[in-house]
């Protein structure tokens, strides 16, 4: 599903984001990307989203070499990737329903499909009755569920989460993790960058630890690694 072959990203100021990174993520995997600040987590996420171009090396997502895509093909790559951020990034002047429908509208989905899929996905994330609320009327957990609903409403095969629990209290965070686990069990590949040791330890999923732009440790099933 995702291949990184000898990927190096050097920033214009000379600092290294990642160096000679080789990573293979299979379809249906649930992978935590952990590491301290400056370890290359953000760079990796941005490379996957094609916000950044690798300096050298290939990135293959869904059998497409993304570093060779032209700029007008990027939107079609991104339709394979759902994204969730730490700060939710909801539109404050749109309702929960509209925020989720927005993701379908901008890829020009027919209204009929929007009316069918949005309520279904809101029910899935446990917001079946919150469709008419505005983001500022929701708790942090509910806002992140809305963002999650928006990320998966177009059925992307891959979901990329950048510190999705970073702004949430532990209990709420745990709810989001269970939801992600459910989504993963339905076949969606999940890549999640995080600092949250408890969550990584409890979930017992694949953990990739980055250190200074390299993979320091990659275990199939395990917990947070301290030495990184």
């Amino acid at each position: 599903m995702i291949w990184l072959n000898n990927v190096t990203k050097t920033y214009p100021n000379g600092s290294r984001g990642v160096e000679n990174l080789n990573l293979h993520i299979e379809k249906g995997d649930f992978v935590f990307i952990v590491g301290s600040s400056g370890s290359g987590k953000s760079t990796l996420i941005k490379l996957l989203l094609k916000e950044l171009e690798p300096t050298t090396g290939d990135i293959i997502i869904n059998r497409v070499k993304t570093n060779e895509l032209s700029s007008n093909q990027i939107p079609y790559l991104r339709r394979n990737l759902g994204v969730v951020f730490q700060d939710f990034r909801l539109l404050p002047n749109k309702t929960v329903y509209e925020n989720v429908a927005f993701a379908m509208r901008v890829i020009e989905a027919p209204n009929r499909i929007i009316r069918r899929n949005v309520p279904a996905v809101l029910a899935l994330v446990g917001l079946g009755k919150k469709g008419r609320s505005y983001p500022n009327q929701l708790s942090g957990g509910e806002q992140q569920r809305t963002a999650l609903a928006r990320a998966i409403v177009n059925n992307p095969p891959i979901l990329i989460c950048d510190e999705p629990t970073g702004n949430l209290d532990p209990e709420t965070a745990w709810g989001i993790m269970q939801l992600l686990d459910d989504i993963n069990k339905r076949g969606t590949t999940i890549v999640m960058a995080t600092h949250a040791r408890d969550i990584v330890d409890d979930m017992q999923k694949r953990v990739v630890t980055l250190k200074q732009g390299n993979i320091a440790r990659d275990i199939k099933k395990g917990g947070y690694c301290d030495e990184a």
Partner: peptide, 16 residues
Amino acid sequence: RVEINIMKYVGATDWF
């Protein structure tokens, strides 16, 4: 800004 940013992440085309 925010709206455009989200549009880009969910795969809206540039012309859209």
